[in-house]
Design a protein around this nucleic acid. Structure first.
Lengths: 191, 191
DNA sequence: CCTACCGATCGGTAGG
DNA sequence: CCTACCGATCGGTAGG
């Protein structure tokens, strides 16, 4: 008897992981189905047993990223924490989502959003909004303590933008840990 | 008799502009030579009269961006300004380089750096470093007045990252001018 | 999931 | 800069 997670879904997950890594490295158009297939030891026709087409793979990568990211982020919320403590946690979790090994899903979403079909985009917006709301609340708490500039939308966008852009230059082996980076980010914004 | 700027270089410039716009919109791999050609009314073989290959177009786009950007940025430096005034000017210029219509060169560089050949990349690093030095000096001045977090490298990267990421969501027609945005950025960082 | 294959499109070239 | 073309690669499919 097979386990609850069937071998089929294992292979599907393998494809998703490989696709995420390659989409992040080379972009959606730059990563071919052949490259994704051979990264998991398949032939170039086989991914279409798991996904309808290449767009569906891109969509699944982003959906998986949002699912994982929202789960981790919501798990980091604790009403008993001070604003500063809560901020420290959210920053650390967000940087983990962006930079930890194997976490290529959200970077793919950030930098290949324009490659996704409009209909697929609409299906993700609701989840993205839940994300944004968490950060909007966080910014509101910090502003209530006089900690950030006064336009809440700009504050949120600049804050997240600064973190999101780290994806483009961060190298795991350059002597700067994600924990260290998270501390620096917090110290930069909350003095 | 022809003018100093020959028609040849006009067509080359047209190609560069169209390539920058399409690379920004669709990414390097997503924008075909055919699309770039037809955007300027050429046939698909003609760009190779002006450029050796597609990589050379990408390189030329980035080089043009750096050239224009550095020129504007250096022109904005004025030793008689206060740190805050200097910061306001640099932010405005940087946002202009990123967001003004027709300024697609630097965004292409920021988001397609990985698509450029290693040898080409090396040839641009010197100019990029001049850019970074200007901002490093700016950050040092602000820190000397106690205005930013204390790690200079992180401060520079987060500051520029927050601005650079604006490229991914800014829409010129959404009621937020670049001037207004620049003011918000300054107010966010220097309270 | 593989084999064998398809039409379309790609970057690039020769010759004018 | 166009015409006409090339080999390579692409996403995707039928049949098993």
């Amino acid at each position: 008897m097979k386990s609850a997670v069937s071998e089929d879904s294992n292979r599907r997950q393998d494809l998703l992981q490989a696709a995420a890594r390659l989409f992040k490295e080379k972009g959606y158009e730059g990563a071919s189905i052949r490259a994704i297939s051979s990264a998991v030891g398949m032939r170039c026709g086989s991914p279409f047993y798991h996904f309808e087409n290449k767009q569906a793979i891109l969509y699944a990568v982003m959906e998986e990223g949002l699912r994982q990211g929202l789960e981790r982020t919501e798990a980091a919320i604790d009403a008993s924490l001070s604003a500063r403590e809560q901020f420290e946690r959210l920053v650390r979790v967000h940087l983990g989502i962006l930079l930890e090994e194997g976490n290529d899903f959200i970077p793919v979403m950030l930098y290949n959003w324009g490659a996704l079909d409009k209909e697929h985009r609409l299906k993700l917006i609701e989840t993205k909004d839940r994300y944004d709301r968490i950060w909007a609340d966080m910014v509101a708490r910090l502003q209530a303590e006089g900690e950030l500039g006064d336009d809440p939308k700009i504050a949120r966008l600049l804050l997240l933008g600064a973190m999101n852009f780290i994806t483009t230059w961060y190298k795991p082996d350059a002597g700067l840990s994600i924990d260290g980076l998270a501390q620096q980010v917090v110290r930069f914004y909350l003095r």
